[in-house]
Simulated assay, not measured.
Amino acid sequence: MLKKTLVALALGGALMGAGQAMAADYAIDKQGQHAFVNFKISHLGYSWLYGTFKDFDGSFSFDAAKPQDSKVNVTLNTTSVDTNHAERDKHLRSDDFLNVGEHPTATFASTAVKSTGDGTADITGDLTLNGVTKPVVIAAKFIGEGKDPWGGYRAGFEGSTMLKLKDFDIQKDLGPASQEVELIISVEGVRK
């Protein structure tokens, strides 16, 4: 009798689990330096200036069978901006640009994910930067997922979006070639 009860409980649990979504939650692997929030902007129309934000944290939920159910949340420390030039970084932290004294963090919270093809999706969300919240769309690409050598499970993505500086109350005019900045994001998450 006990054996039949255990089999019935196991079968019932399996059937209940089959109806549930298989989404998994991931923490962005910033400790292992497997995640980046980079940017590039034209310098006078003659070259590209590249930079990164060295301090950010976040998480995402992902199910390859139901990408539309995915969610992304990221918090970024704007004081961590780094363009490999101390004086420029100091200027970028000023109220001409990121105004880190009043707005030391930027955040992104997804509101929708729409599949656009095999392994690609548009992630729409609210970006708060320099005290201004605007909807943005990140064109994302699934890189891969699987077990890691340390007994964990990982998933990785890359994406990009263009931001108009004036949309986020960045009023410093850098000339006609420098009105937009491209954000380039690469994240690897470790399943929780």
Rank of each mutant, 00 (worst) to 15 (best):
G159E: 04
P149D: 07
M162L: 13
E158R: 15
K164Q: 14
F142K: 02
G146N: 11
R154P: 01
G159V: 01
D126E: 15
F168A: 05
G144T: 00
F142G: 06
K166T: 10
A140S: 15
I143P: 06
G152E: 11
D167R: 04
P135W: 14
R154G: 07
V136S: 11
M162K: 12
Y153M: 00
S160W: 08
G151P: 07
F157K: 05
D167I: 04
Y153N: 12
D167T: 10
G144N: 05
T128S: 00
F168M: 07
K166M: 03
L163Q: 06
M162G: 04
K164L: 11
T128E: 04
K134D: 03
D169G: 03
D169V: 06
V132Q: 09
D148F: 13
G156L: 13
G146K: 11
G131Y: 12
G151S: 11
G151M: 10
V137D: 08
V132F: 01
A139V: 12
F142C: 06
G151R: 11
T133D: 01
A140T: 14
D126F: 10
G151Q: 13
E158K: 15
L163P: 15
V137H: 07
F168L: 05
T133H: 09
G156R: 06
R154Q: 10
A140H: 07
K164V: 12
A140E: 03
T133E: 01
G156C: 00
N130D: 08
V132D: 01
A155S: 10
R154F: 03
T133G: 00
E158S: 01
I138D: 06
K166P: 03
P135H: 05
A139D: 14
D126G: 01
K172E: 08
Q171D: 07
G152K: 12
D169C: 04
G131R: 15
K141G: 00
Y153T: 09
M162H: 11
D173P: 15
W150L: 08
E145C: 04
K141W: 04
D167W: 13
G156W: 15
I138H: 12
M162Q: 09
M162P: 08
W150C: 04
W150Q: 00
T128I: 05
T161L: 03
T128C: 01
K141A: 02
D173S: 15
G156H: 15
K134F: 06
D169W: 02
K147Q: 10
K172N: 14
I138R: 10
V132T: 10
I143K: 14
N130S: 03
K164W: 02
T161K: 02
Y153A: 06
G144M: 06
D173C: 05
K164D: 02
G152M: 07
F157H: 09
G152I: 14
F157C: 09
K147T: 05
D148M: 04
G125F: 09
Y153L: 12
I170A: 05
T161P: 01
F168Q: 09
G144I: 07
G151N: 13
L127D: 00
K147P: 01
V136G: 12
M162E: 01
L163T: 04
D167K: 12
V137N: 14
F157I: 03
K134Y: 13
L165T: 08
K164E: 10
K141H: 01
G159I: 02
D148G: 05
P135G: 08
A140G: 03
P149R: 11
T133Y: 11
G156E: 09
K164H: 09
I143C: 08
Y153D: 01
F168V: 02
G146L: 06
G131S: 06
